[in-house]
């Protein structure tokens, strides 16, 4: 990762996670929840918020403790820290809504092994000051949530004809006669939509880059 070579500017730390190093579309991290929970917009939202919370809190703690944790046991320490916050989120969601908890299934607990969080702890938080680590975590978290929502909106719209189903704000998009494409709610739909969206974002990024170099040369 080139960004570690020279200390990045503060704003860049935040923006990177959204676009240039988007954890899902660019780094292809955390694919397991991305494919599994994105069949409903509300799931994407809950997953994104939970993962962001865990990411921010564990980045903060890791960054605060970075001078005290011996490097031989650092991974074990990070995992314990991350697992603590994941369990907190797990209880919190159970307390908020059991239906939401059921539809997220095992994926809340699996945030522990989400490579985005351990990756950020190891690659960034453990070598930067707490404010920067938190900023990076927020950026990555929002980038992750954004990617989940990108998939979720398409999958729920096509697979069920709605947005925000199972919430009080459910919107029916195409009327009652719409034939839902159930494949989109099922796992294959996750792969199809993810593949096509990675294609789209790569194309968009290349295009923007070309425009940027063209502008610099001019």
């Amino acid at each position: 990762m080139s960004t570690q070579e020279n200390t990045p500017r503060t704003l860049d730390v935040f923006l990177r996670g959204l676009w240039e190093e988007n954890p899902v579309f660019v780094m292809l991290l955390g694919m397991c929840p991305v494919l599994a929970v994105t069949n409903k917009v509300i799931n994407c939202f809950a997953m994104g918020v939970s993962a962001t919370f865990v990411l921010v809190m564990s980045s903060l703690i890791v960054s605060l403790l970075r001078n005290y944790i011996p490097k031989q046991v650092r991974i074990a320490s990070y995992i314990v820290i991350i697992a603590t916050f994941v369990t907190i989120v797990d209880y919190a969601i159970q307390a908020i809504s059991l239906d939401l908890y059921d539809s997220l299934g095992a994926f809340i607990q699996l945030i522990v092994v989400n490579c985005i969080i351990l990756g950020r702890a190891e690659a960034f938080a453990s070598r930067n000051t707490p404010p920067k680590a938190v900023l990076d975590a927020i950026g990555m978290g929002i980038g992750f949530t954004f990617a989940l929502l990108c998939l979720g909106v398409v999958r729920e719209a096509l697979g069920n004809g709605t947005l925000l189903m199972d919430t009080p704000w459910e919107i029916s998009l195409f009327g009652p006669r719409f034939a839902p494409w159930s494949v989109m709610i099922l796992p294959p739909g996750g792969f199809f939509v993810l593949g096509l969206q990675i294609l789209f974002f790569n194309w968009l990024r290349k295009k923007l880059q070309r425009r940027k170099t063209a502008a610099e040369q001019a």
Binding site: V73, V80, T84, I88, A95
Partner: peptide, 25 residues
Amino acid sequence: GTLAGIAFVSGVLLALVYEGTYDRI
């Protein structure tokens, strides 16, 4: 020492959260 410390703090924190959410769940 480090691991035990982190684990201890984590355990205390989780116990508090568990107590706090038990009734709601």
